[in-house]
């Protein structure tokens, strides 16, 4: 057995809140089967109190993908969307008694899917407006891209050398070599976090790490 906690295995074996809510108030599909993890979250939200009255998920993914989605649905059911938005991927991982570093990105995916669904609902209700993508927002998103080796953010690990947002193009310089073991994984994760932003046409990623001579 992998180094999964008992709680991860418990949720993997008996996932809570599985399925799809008919006539959901909001839904989000994050990730893609090509990347190996994909999550669909559907929500029922009380319009007056903003309380999440029901939440269900479906997952194409590994054990930690299923377990993080399952625990997250438990954590936010009955909470207001404002409270739910504050839940971080670290809290979800802690609630599962930890995740292996290489699997932390699954917790990020689950939290992102929830946030997307809430954001969509707020947009629908006119509670949020479309703001242009700022460097601050890009940095916030990049903090959720993890180095699978350590499970810590690429920003904290100083793998992000530089980035720039201009004319709908985000350019990112990573302090990694193109043949780094996790280069293609990190690249996919960055695209997953940024490609869908409404005013972004292109995300360019450069690997500028020093090549060994």
């Amino acid at each position: 057995m992998l180094s999964y906690s008992k709680k991860v295995i418990e949720h993997f074996k008996h996932p809570r809140n599985v399925g799809e809510i008919a006539n959901a108030d909001a839904e989000a599909l994050e990730g893609s089967p090509a990347c190996g993890d994909m999550l669909k979250i559907t929500l029922k939200i009380d319009e007056k109190t903003h309380v999440i009255t029901d939440i269900k998920f479906e997952s194409f993914g590994c054990a930690s993908n299923i377990a993080t989605a399952s625990i997250l649905t438990e954590m936010v059911k009955g909470k207001t969307i404002e409270e739910a938005e504050k839940v971080t991927w670290k809290q979800a991982a802690e609630e599962l008694e930890g995740l292996p570093p290489v699997k932390m990105h699954c917790a990020v995916l689950a939290v992102d899917a929830l946030k997307s669904a809430i954001e969509q609902w707020k947009e629908k209700k006119g509670l949020a407006d479309k703001k242009p993508t700022t460097p601050d927002k890009v940095l916030r998103k990049l903090r959720n891209v993890l180095n699978p080796l350590t499970g810590a953010s690429i920003v904290r690990m100083q793998l992000l050398r530089d980035f720039d947002v201009a004319d709908g193009v985000i350019t990112i310089d990573l302090d990694l070599t193109p043949d780094h073991k996790f280069a293609s994984h990190i690249q996919e994760e960055i695209h997953e976090k940024l490609d869908h932003l409404w005013d972004i046409k292109e995300v360019k990623i450069n690997f500028v790490g020093e090549l060994e001579s």
């Binding site: 057995m1 992998l2 295995i9 190996g36 590994c62 054990a63 699997k103 996790f182 994984h185």
Partner: peptide, 21 residues
């Protein structure tokens, strides 16, 4: 993992199982 819980050992080509994801 589900097969493993039933005592059956196999392998997979999934990225989630690979050391390089």
């Amino acid at each position: 993992l589900r097969l493993d819980m039933q005592g059956i050992a196999v392998a997979t080509g999934s990225a989630c199982f690979s050391k390089a994801l």
